[in-house]
Simulated scan of single mutants.
Amino acid sequence: MANASTGKSKAQSVAEVEDLEPAVEPVLHASIYDDLRRRMITGKIVPGVGLSTRGLALELGVSQMPVRDALSRLAAEGAVAIRSKRKIEVPPMNPERFTDLLDCRLLLEPEAAVQALPHITPAKMKQLREIDAALDTAMENGDVIGYMEKNFEFHFALYRANNRPTLNRLIETLWLQFGPFMRVVYGRYGTANLVDQHRVALDAIEAGDADSLRRAIAGDIADGMGLIGRTSWS
């Protein structure tokens, strides 16, 4: 009886594993995609450095398949260019692409912030202030990666309060395309002299002033993208 019970338990375990396997692969692919997406947005992947499917797979401890799938998705979003199996890179910036990205950000992000305004709770306000304080520390310390991570967290903690996931996903796609270049620019110019438009935005949120919030977000975009504009496209 014990052996039969044990055999049944093993059979059940095998069945459970088999049931789980189809669900594991999409979750893994999504995880790798989200990881690489976050790296690009926060400047951990920079222009001029080739991406290796094999190298990324080894670094992440996975097979090449989910990495290849993630890179294909990023290519469809304009974040990387796949020249061949061995040549994958951030596509170069040029005046036309820069203007397009800037115009789209100025069109979407101030509106996303204003639409979030009615949904900012005291808890959300506290979170935004904490992120901004950490961002200030990164600026003072010249911590470029830390600054970019906190800048991303601040903007999307604000935008996601608007309950407009499609709008926010479109904005993330824009961030994917300029994030690598911001990393280069901040590395060149530093962070100490950046204007903290986030404080202006926080004051506007506190006052419930939609017009001031819209101007603060537009000013923040113009300051950051303006640094890219001052940089040689090469």
Rank of each mutant, 00 (worst) to 15 (best):
T99W: 09
D211W: 01
V14Q: 11
I228W: 08
I41Q: 06
K124R: 15
D34W: 11
D69Y: 14
T53L: 09
F152W: 14
M182F: 15
L71R: 00
I82A: 05
N141Y: 06
V17Y: 10
E25V: 15
T42W: 04
F154H: 09
P165F: 02
A157W: 05
Y159A: 07
W233P: 09
C104Y: 12
M148E: 01
E153N: 09
A161V: 01
A192L: 14
N162K: 00
M93Q: 02
V80F: 05
A70M: 02
L74S: 07
V200W: 09
P122V: 06
I221R: 07
E149Y: 00
A123F: 03
R54A: 08
L20R: 10
R188A: 12
N193E: 08
M139T: 12
V195Y: 12
R188C: 04
N163H: 15
T137L: 11
Y159C: 06
R54V: 06
D211E: 14
A75Q: 08
L71Q: 05
L58T: 11
Q115T: 06
G61P: 04
T121M: 04
V184C: 11
M1V: 11
I120L: 10
E130A: 13
T99Q: 12
E18P: 14
I221E: 03
E18I: 10
H198N: 08
Y189K: 13
A2W: 03
L71C: 02
D132Q: 14
M93T: 05
C104F: 13
M225I: 00
R230E: 02
Y33N: 01
N193H: 13
L51Q: 02
Q127S: 12
S13E: 15
I221V: 05
G190C: 07
E89S: 15
A113T: 05
M65G: 15
Y159G: 00
M1Q: 13
L158R: 02
V46D: 09
D196T: 09
R160K: 10
S232H: 06
L227W: 14
P110N: 08
Q12S: 15
A204H: 05
L202P: 11
E96V: 09
S63W: 07
E109D: 01
S63I: 04
Q177W: 00
A11Y: 03
D132E: 14
S9D: 11
E149H: 01
G61H: 03
L227C: 06
V14H: 14
M40S: 01
S232V: 07
G219K: 08
L135H: 13
L128F: 03
E77P: 14
A138E: 06
G219E: 04
V67R: 04
P180V: 03
S84H: 04
F154S: 00
E111G: 11
S234K: 13
L71W: 05
V144N: 07
L28W: 03
L108T: 00
F98K: 06
S84N: 01
M40A: 03
G219W: 04
T191F: 06
V67E: 09
S72C: 12
N193G: 11
R73E: 06
E153Y: 04
R38W: 13
T53V: 08
G229K: 12
T231E: 00
S212F: 09
D100Y: 10
F152M: 10
W233R: 12
I45E: 02
M125R: 11
A79G: 06
R183E: 03
S84V: 02
K10D: 11
I45W: 10
E149I: 01
I32C: 01
W175E: 05
Y186V: 02
A81F: 08
V27N: 13
L202G: 06
L106N: 06
